[in-house]
């Protein structure tokens, strides 16, 4: 029962670490931001997993149903999704601006240009 009970969390950790790996290992700034988004989406899945109750229903009240999943994580993640898009758009705008200034979005080339100035 332990494996089945923790399977969700472990896969989510694998997904998080995949996103984390993309962020720190890839040199392309756009790919870094996509990695950050992968990380973010997996955190959402973790929170929603925590809110699920066995045989629960979606938290929209109806007569005759008494077993609802926890609505609080859903609310937190709704907020987080929208904030996530705001930060993503700001990050991508920074990438476009960096591309204008340096003519590249590869991290090491930007670094070389800074060194050679």
């Amino acid at each position: 029962m332990t494996i089945a009970g923790l399977y969700n969390y472990w896969i989510v950790i694998l997904l998080m670490m995949t996103g984390f790996y993309v962020v720190i290992a890839s040199g392309n700034l756009v790919k870094k931001i996509i990695g950050l988004n992968l990380f973010q989406a997996s955190v959402f899945i973790l929170y929603i997993s925590l809110g699920k109750i066995a045989d629960g229903h979606a938290p929209i009240l109806q007569a005759g149903i008494s077993n609802y999943s926890n609505p609080l994580p859903h609310v937190l993640i709704l907020t987080a999704i929208v904030v996530g898009v705001a930060t993503t758009s700001l990050g991508l705008a920074l990438v476009v601006r960096i591309r204008e200034a340096y003519d590249t979005v590869e991290e090491d080339e930007i670094h070389d240009q800074d060194e050679s100035m």
């Binding site: 929603i48 809110g51 699920k52 629960g56 938290p59 609802y68 993640i77 999704i81 996530g84």
Partner: peptide
């Protein structure tokens, strides 16, 4: 699947 249909809507539109 995890009963978070509001989150699913938002993720489908925004994510």
């Amino acid at each position: 699947v995890l009963d978070a249909i509001d989150v699913a809507f938002t993720e489908a539109a925004v994510g």
